[in-house]
Amino acid sequence: MSYSGQFQGQGVPLSPSEEKTWSMLAHVGVFVAAWFAMGFLCPLAIWLIFRYRSDFVRRHALESLNFQISLLIYGVVAAILVLITFGLGVLIVLPLVAIGAVAAIVVIVRATMAASDGRDYRYPFTLRFVK
């Protein structure tokens, strides 16, 4: 009995049902991690664990990871804008953050639904750092 595939980072392929489940969790799991401003942790963990076992899960986890990294960058830029304008930027940033938060929830739900249907999804306004 040979376990060489598992030690080379491949492992046992996932069933279609498992693929959909883990792909959905890559998107919806960010809501749990987002409470700690680390929404990228869930898709990162799923990508690291399943990237060699399922191309479908890898694509969804990467898309979610890149979206979460993009949101983090946009948040840092917003905070810097508020700081360099001595707080006046908050008049612009707060409405944008509110709109962005609602939009982020909508696209995360859409991505989760696409994963549950077995379809790929591309987040809008996403910087794709991880490939």
Results as ranks from 00 to 15, higher is better:
V107P: 06
F129E: 06
L41S: 04
L41G: 05
V82L: 09
M113F: 07
A111F: 02
L65V: 05
A61Q: 12
V93T: 15
A115H: 06
A103L: 15
F125L: 13
Y121D: 02
D117F: 04
V106H: 07
R119N: 14
Y74F: 15
W35D: 00
Y121I: 00
W35R: 06
I99A: 14
D117V: 00
I73M: 07
A45H: 06
V32W: 09
V57Y: 06
I84Q: 02
A37K: 10
I73R: 02
S64V: 05
A103N: 08
L81M: 15
A103I: 06
G75E: 07
R53W: 07
Y123V: 04
H60F: 12
A37Q: 10
G87W: 07
I80R: 00
V82F: 07
L41D: 01
S116N: 13
L44S: 09
P43F: 08
A61N: 07
F56L: 05
F86K: 03
G118L: 05
L81N: 05
V106E: 11
L71D: 01
F31R: 08
P43N: 05
G39K: 08
F31H: 03
L94P: 07
F125D: 02
L83I: 06
Y121K: 11
F31T: 06
A79T: 08
G39P: 06
G118C: 09
K131V: 04
